[in-house]
């Protein structure tokens, strides 16, 4: 059995009287694709917001490689190797594609100002590495030819892929994707599907996914968690979940 990368226990988030997330448990192992599904408003994105430091959870623990994340600031969490995307595209639209890729590596270039101004050999080497990594990932998502275009001018599907590439240059261990297939056409969805599998198999990272496209979720997930009204409903392999009567009831309503 592979080691536990993310271990979330009894995560709870309250907004005043509203219980948005109620004692959710999540386990992600190394090199695993794990999905969270559930009806709209089930609290999936709230879980993401807690994990990425956007909200401070009311209760529960978030262990990432055994380290407590609850209470850390968002930029500290991403430095630990846990990065995310959003339901809507959040690229730096007025910057070029390559600049988007470089700004994400800002902290890897964290040398002092003086060496940056003098362009010391050490600084140049780091800069070159950042550039190489950016080019590598642009190639992976088939965007290299658009490197010097402004990100805002890319087609929607390309913007989605650029977001994933931009996350990858930060060298994460866990990538959290919030509805990455939303708005994609079937061909783009298939490419996304292959990309996510490649991230797990070739780049050996784990992916935590929120997605409504059941074809995508069932096809690539190693494990699925179902949440309804903030409360865990079921979890298991795609087959288990598909046949779980509670899940069917939550999705289709009582019959």
């Amino acid at each position: 059995m592979s080691q536990l990368l993310l271990d979330v226990n009894e995560l709870t988030m309250r907004f005043g009287g509203l219980l948005a997330v109620n004692e959710v448990n999540l386990k992600v192992k190394n090199r695993q694709i794990v999905s969270i599904i559930g009806p709209n408003g089930a609290g999936k994105t709230t879980v993401f917001n807690c994990l990425s430091g956007f909200y401070i959870p009311t209760d529960g623990s978030i262990l990432f490689r055994g380290e407590q994340l609850a209470g850390l600031k968002d930029f500290q969490i991403s430095r630990k190797g846990l990065v995310r995307t959003f339901q809507h595209v959040r690229l730096f639209k007025r910057m070029t594609v390559i600049e988007n890729m470089l700004v994400a590596q800002h902290r890897h270039l964290n040398t002092n100002l003086l060496s940056g101004m003098l362009k010391t050999p050490g600084y140049k080497r780091l800069e070159q590495e950042a550039m190489d990594r950016a080019i590598y990932w642009l190639e992976e998502v088939d965007l290299l030819e658009h490197a010097n275009r402004e990100a805002g001018y890319l087609a929607y599907g390309q913007q989605r892929k650029l977001e994933i590439a931009r996350c990858m240059v930060t060298q994460p261990e866990l990538l959290m994707l919030d509805e990455p297939a939303a708005g994609l056409n079937p061909k783009e969805t298939k490419e996304l599907d292959e990309l996510i599998i490649r991230l797990r198999d070739e780049h050996e990272i784990s992916v935590l996914l929120i997605e409504h496209d059941m074809g995508l979720v069932m096809g690539i997930s190693d494990h699925i968690y179902v949440i309804a009204q903030g409360t865990p409903l079921a979890d298991g392999s795609p087959m288990d979940v598909k046949e779980n009567p509670d899940v069917i009831k939550a999705y289709l309503g009582e019959s």
Binding site: S52, K73, D74, F75, S78, R79, V83, R84, F86, R90, F92, V103, A104, H106, R107, R166, T170
Partner: peptide, 9 residues
């Protein structure tokens, strides 16, 4: 917000 999430202080 996104800049923060990319690990930039």
């Amino acid at each position: 917000g996104m800049t923060n999430l990319l690990g930039i202080d």
